[in-house]
Amino acid sequence: MTEPQTDKTGAVVHIALDETRAISAYTVTLDDGTLAGRADFIDPPEGEGEGERVFFHTEVSPEFGGRGLAGLLLREALADSVRRNVTVVPVCPLFAKHLKEHGEEYTARGGRFRKPRPADLALVKKTTEEQA
């Protein structure tokens, strides 16, 4: 878990990495433990993109919208990807847009990313169907 952060309202939130399922996520919770959102990703299996992280869905519960939580999730996920030395594959539109606009800044901080390939989309489809 990262150090507590504050959202746009000044409320304390916590971002944590949850790798307990086939679909992992960075989660954002309120100070009282209420889950407010998540950025879902898949680490491809060995031999199919080792050292990569496919971000495919980011969601914040509607009642917490407008507080900047998706941005906090995105920034922590990208910062942690730099720390872990993994390449980001942005299937999620939020991640794709951010990296399109700020990719040079991200790579200047040591980050790596690449455009999604058909195999990445197939992996997301297969994994999400298996979890349904």
Rank of each mutant, 00 (worst) to 15 (best):
P93Q: 10
L74T: 03
L35W: 09
E59F: 14
V124C: 01
V91M: 06
G111H: 07
D18E: 03
G66I: 08
E50Q: 06
D7L: 08
S61R: 12
V91P: 02
I23F: 06
L73R: 05
R114T: 07
V86F: 06
T87I: 10
E19C: 08
E3L: 15
V91H: 04
S81N: 09
R114G: 03
I15T: 06
A122P: 08
A39R: 06
V124M: 01
T20M: 11
V91T: 05
P44T: 04
P4V: 01
A36P: 05
L123S: 07
D40I: 02
E104W: 09
A36F: 02
V89E: 01
A16S: 15
I42V: 10
A132Y: 14
R84F: 08
Q131A: 14
V12D: 02
I23C: 01
P116A: 11
E50T: 12
A39F: 07
L123G: 03
R53N: 03
P118Q: 03
L121F: 13
A25F: 04
K126P: 13
E101K: 12
T6N: 12
E48H: 13
T34A: 10
G10S: 00
G103V: 04
T87G: 01
E46C: 11
L74Q: 00
R67C: 02
I23V: 14
I15S: 01
T34K: 11
L99F: 01
F95L: 03
D18N: 13
R112Y: 09
L17Y: 14
G71V: 15
E129L: 15
T20F: 10
L69Y: 02
A132F: 12
T127A: 01
A108L: 13
T9G: 01
V13G: 00
V12I: 07
T20I: 04
P44A: 04
L17C: 05
R67G: 00
R75N: 13
T20D: 04
R114I: 10
T127H: 02
Q131F: 11
V89D: 00
H102A: 07
A132I: 10
G47V: 07
D7N: 09
C92F: 04
G103L: 06
G103F: 05
R75Q: 12
V124W: 01
V13D: 00
G37W: 05
R38G: 09
D31C: 05
E59R: 12
I15D: 02
T20P: 12
D120Q: 02
I15G: 01
G110P: 13
R83T: 09
G51P: 03
V82N: 08
R112I: 13
Q5A: 15
P93A: 02
F64W: 14
V88G: 00
A25Y: 03
V91I: 15
S81L: 08
K8Y: 13
K8V: 06
K126R: 12
D43S: 07
E52V: 05
F41P: 02
E48Y: 11
F95H: 09
E130K: 14
V89S: 00
S24I: 05
R114F: 10
K100I: 13
T58P: 05
K126S: 11
E63R: 12
I15N: 02
G10L: 03
P93M: 11
R112G: 13
L69C: 03
L35V: 08
T127G: 01
V124S: 00
T58N: 02
R112C: 14
K126C: 06
T6W: 08
C92Q: 09
T128H: 11
